[in-house]
Simulated assay, not measured.
Amino acid sequence: MTITAPFDNSYAALPEGFFSRINPTPVANPRLLAFNEPLASSLGLEFATKDDLAFVLGGNELPVGADPLAQLYAGHQFGSYNPQLGDGRAILLGEVVDRSGKRRDIQLKGSGRTPYSRGGDGRAWLGPVLREYVVSEAMHALGIPTTRALAAVATGEDVYRETALPGAVLTRVASSHLRVGTFQVYAHRGEIENLRLLTQYAIERHYPDADGPMGLLRAVCDRQADLIASWMSVGFIHGVMNTDNCAISGETIDYGPCAFMDAFHVNRVFSSIDRQGRYAFSNQPQIAVWNMAQLATALLPLLENSDAALAEATQIVHAMSDQIETAW
């Protein structure tokens, strides 16, 4: 009972310091709730029955060719730096090169504890899983760069938050799960060789025409500027624009407390813990610039040690505000 996919796992070939190898934790009674057949076809997935899908995408069996791991990263959360976060409830099964030649991550979210769980249970409950499935596919249909939803699987187990809630696992597809926080963790630790390896990997995977770290910074800023303008144009509020939720690829990632505004309020907030309005609708452009400043800071150890290099990086980041306004 399994599924097959054309796995080609480049991230797993990086040194062990980038991740922890770990398998998903099996669940009691996996049941397929939603399945994105057109996306599955584009990825080259093959399977015999929907029961096979539930069994594998619920985490009870590994698909052929998978090399599961939890990724390490850090991040600024509501402006405060956390030196180690990582995939606390998600496991990257591996990467496939889809039928159009694009490399895609396949990740199980809510698949059990990892070394980065920090006391959490590593699980997800059904409500947020369905929200991410629906909203990410809506964003894709609107033409806005985003991670995709491949499947939602009920686990047959309860998870416990304020009360008992039905558990579920989301299968997420992304161009990659590299984040600003992935760069921050190595810069903060002073692990310059790992930072260099990560930068080269990101360039090769996402921006092959970029000229070194400065070129990567410029390319990511360009993508983020277009992305934020797209959010603003449809009244989308991400809700939690931490640097660990900011993808290097320029895709929308991590749909936590998010929303499309039903009625326009420029300072609308959509997160119960965002009491200061840091991630309000109107603040999203400036937060994107702030996040890119953190990326620039993380890349500084790789840049030419000169006033000119610092000035160029500063100019790239500061230019984003006008880029976002123009794109919007």
Rank of each mutant, 00 (worst) to 15 (best):
129 V>H: 07
30 P>G: 02
263 A>E: 14
147 T>V: 03
304 E>P: 12
114 T>M: 07
294 Q>L: 11
61 E>W: 11
144 I>Q: 00
8 D>N: 15
220 V>Y: 01
127 G>S: 13
162 E>V: 08
194 N>S: 15
129 V>C: 03
156 G>D: 08
202 A>E: 00
181 G>L: 00
214 M>S: 13
72 L>Y: 04
112 G>R: 02
44 G>S: 03
285 P>D: 02
54 A>L: 02
84 Q>D: 11
126 L>S: 04
3 I>T: 01
79 G>N: 04
64 V>E: 14
271 S>I: 09
145 P>K: 01
170 L>N: 00
273 I>L: 10
12 A>G: 12
291 N>T: 02
308 A>W: 12
108 L>I: 08
130 L>V: 13
219 A>H: 05
245 N>W: 11
96 V>R: 01
12 A>I: 03
217 L>K: 00
41 S>G: 11
322 D>L: 14
13 A>C: 10
290 W>G: 07
289 V>C: 07
89 R>P: 07
256 G>Q: 08
99 R>W: 05
162 E>G: 02
254 D>K: 00
318 H>C: 14
182 T>H: 04
3 I>F: 12
112 G>P: 04
313 A>K: 02
217 L>S: 00
164 A>Y: 13
45 L>G: 02
101 G>I: 09
216 L>N: 00
300 L>W: 11
319 A>L: 09
141 A>D: 15
201 Y>P: 03
108 L>S: 04
201 Y>A: 06
103 R>K: 13
287 I>W: 12
258 C>S: 15
73 Y>E: 00
237 I>Q: 09
87 D>T: 04
131 R>M: 07
72 L>M: 11
122 G>M: 04
45 L>K: 01
41 S>V: 14
261 M>T: 03
295 L>M: 06
169 V>Q: 07
324 I>R: 08
118 R>I: 04
210 A>D: 06
194 N>T: 09
169 V>F: 10
172 R>N: 01
181 G>I: 07
22 I>T: 11
300 L>V: 14
153 V>A: 05
163 T>C: 12
261 M>S: 09
181 G>D: 09
264 F>E: 10
161 R>Y: 09
248 I>R: 00
62 L>S: 10
196 R>H: 13
170 L>W: 03
125 W>E: 12
285 P>T: 06
244 D>I: 11
301 P>I: 01
230 S>R: 13
107 Q>P: 06
311 A>T: 13
97 V>G: 04
129 V>I: 09
281 F>T: 06
267 N>W: 15
316 I>N: 05
146 T>R: 03
169 V>M: 06
294 Q>P: 04
24 P>H: 08
113 R>D: 06
208 P>L: 05
271 S>H: 15
279 Y>D: 09
286 Q>M: 15
302 L>S: 09
4 T>E: 13
293 A>E: 11
300 L>A: 15
206 H>E: 03
84 Q>R: 11
263 A>T: 14
65 G>T: 04
79 G>R: 01
184 Q>N: 08
241 M>N: 10
211 D>F: 07
128 P>N: 02
314 T>L: 13
288 A>M: 11
37 E>R: 14
136 S>M: 13
